[in-house]
Amino acid sequence: MSKSIASKNAAPSNQNQAARKSTWRVVDIVVVSVLGVAIGVIFWLWSAGYGLISAFTVAFPPVGALYGGGWLIAGVLGGLVIRKPGAALYCELIAASVEGLLGTHFGFTVLLSGLVQGLGAELGFALFRYRKFNLPVALLAGALAGLAMGINDSLVWNVAWAMEWKLVYVVLAMISGAIIAGLVSWLAVRGLARTGALSNLPSRGAAIERAV
């Protein structure tokens, strides 16, 4: 709510602020949903591209994990834009569902992947108690989402791989998550904030916040 001039000197109570942080307004829900759905469409294209990419990774399939960071953007971006508990998880889940709606080779497992990856990103933000949303936090959230993705994939898709390859896969997934999901999302949010598009969202000041 906007502050009224009359009650300007009455400092808002801490309790009030805390409540605002965790209650979702309609605009928060709709914006994060739209981001989720839009990224879901991109995921879908990204999945189609996976076939192409895998043609290059035939010699050494774990490198495919480097591509995986693309599937983690939704969580980190959603968390950075809405800055509320659950935003990262919800955004990643929506994106995964939309990817599923458009049809992908992951079938229903996209929902599982979305859940797991979203939880990974969520954990990154939760570690800082939803107070900090700078570059290191974004990178951490991306890396944790990558960790979640790596473990999940190793259990679901790469079950038959030997253990050391699974490890390599997980590490590469974390790197990819930090760079593709963490860095790119952070840059995107800054760019968005600069255009004023985020003016009625908690991240409106992202463009002028310090990187670290």
Partner: peptide
């Protein structure tokens, strides 16, 4: 694309199992 992905996934496993 699903067909392609399945074949590639199978290939990767055959290589790394």
């Amino acid at each position: 694309p699903i067909l392609v992905a399945a074949v590639v996934g199978g290939y990767g496993t055959a290589l790394l199992a």
